[in-house]
Simulated scan of single mutants.
Amino acid sequence: MSRAFEDFSIGDVYELGSQKVTHEEIVQFARMYDPQPRHLDHEDLIASGWHVTAMFMRLYAEEVLLHAAAEVSPGVDELRWLRPVRPGDILTGRVTVVGVAASLSRPDCGILQQRGEFFDEQDRPVMRVMLYGLMRRKEGLS
């Protein structure tokens, strides 16, 4: 069953699971989307911040969005890449609901504000983002 807007509360935390970062994925992503030397062939290879964000989004979609009455996202704020991500790093994601509000344009929906975080295996933050999502209300789910 999908979680509706009313099923989310401020303070709710959703653990997203983990993802191991590989050398091959870093280079493949860089070749396709961010072909800077640090992401392609540098001796101290690091993942593109956009790659890190895409990995986070995959975990977020699988753990939260695919189990919710999600509509669309009106955007994100405060996307920050806080430390380099290297091959072999294991990243663990988490989102925390920090705001809930009625949608002014869609009475059948509410807007969730969630803080997304990615941590390395030493529990150090590598990425933070503020996510906004439009979720259908229970009465609109029939």
Rank of each mutant, 00 (worst) to 15 (best):
P107R: 05
C109Q: 13
D12W: 03
G93S: 10
F29D: 03
L91T: 12
R128D: 02
L112R: 01
D12S: 06
A4K: 07
M135C: 06
S18L: 11
G17F: 14
S18T: 13
L82A: 09
V72M: 06
E63I: 02
L65P: 12
E78P: 01
Y60M: 07
V97K: 04
V27R: 14
R80V: 02
G99V: 04
E62D: 15
M127L: 12
D108R: 05
R106Y: 13
D41V: 00
C109V: 03
M1S: 15
G140T: 10
I111M: 08
W81H: 14
S105K: 15
F29L: 02
Q113W: 01
G99M: 04
V95Y: 14
A70F: 12
V64P: 08
P37G: 01
L134C: 13
A69M: 07
H67V: 01
R38C: 10
F5Y: 15
S73Q: 03
I10E: 15
L45V: 00
H23T: 03
L131A: 01
E117S: 08
R80G: 06
V13F: 10
V97E: 03
L40V: 00
D123A: 14
L91V: 09
L59V: 05
L65Q: 13
Q113N: 01
G133I: 07
D44P: 00
L79Y: 13
F8G: 03
A69H: 09
V100R: 14
L79C: 07
